[in-house]
């Protein structure tokens, strides 16, 4: 009957839609990241290095002062201390500043990991420009070592006026082997 070929045609079309949607679910990841980069949706600041020249020659330094706060998080205090050297700074948007985070490895083993930044309020994340940051690369802390981790940054003067306080948080995640992370028993 003629509806048989019609059915096959419809089925093919629908399967195509299915596949497209399956791929779409994966495409959502880069899409989300792009949207987040543009809008600062999730407070995940870009890990890209900004050109220092664009800020050192900046003449548009705003007279408005704002507070920037530094906080940190790491999962195990007994193994590693990781904290900012100062909690708060009063800064002018458009100017480059620097601060330090200090990490102390309290164990007898080498700790490897990376600090992941997050900014609150989320909208501020796209105005926070990091010129030099330890979060760009993996960090290795030797046993007992105390490491000073520098951060050079500027806040874009285009930051909306109503934002008076910006908080920058670093969560330090230790690098763990995948095989070590989970086996099929679900043990860590």
């Amino acid at each position: 009957m003629n509806y048989k070929s019609l059915n096959i045609k419809t089925t093919k079309k629908l399967i195509f839609v299915c596949f497209t949607m399956f791929l779409f679910s994966f495409a959502l990841i880069p899409l989300y990241n792009i949207i987040c980069d543009v809008t600062g949706l999730n407070g995940n600041t870009s890990n890209l290095k900004e050109k220092i020249e664009s800020y050192s020659e900046n003449k548009n330094i705003s007279s408005e002062k704002l507070n920037i706060q530094f906080i940190s998080h790491q999962s195990n205090d007994k193994k590693l201390s990781f904290k900012p050297s100062e909690f708060e700074m009063s800064i002018s948007p458009g100017k480059v500043y620097s601060t330090l985070y200090i990490a102390t490895n309290k164990t007898g083993e080498t700790i490897i990991g990376q600090a992941v930044p997050s900014v609150s309020p989320n909208e501020a994340s796209k105005y926070l420009k990091k010129i030099e940051c330890f979060c760009f690369e993996e960090q290795t802390f030797k046993p007992g070592e105390i490491v000073k981790l520098p951060l050079y940054f500027a806040i874009d003067e285009k930051l909306p006026n109503r934002i008076k306080t910006v908080t920058l948080s670093y969560s330090f995640f230790e690098k763990i082997n995948v095989s070590k992370k989970t086996n099929f028993k679900g043990e860590k």
Binding site: L14, V17, C18, F19, M21, F22, F24, S25, F26, L28
Partner: peptide, 9 residues
């Protein structure tokens, strides 16, 4: 058809 593949993904 539109959303089950998204869950699968």
């Amino acid at each position: 058809i539109a959303v089950m593949p998204v869950l699968a993904g």
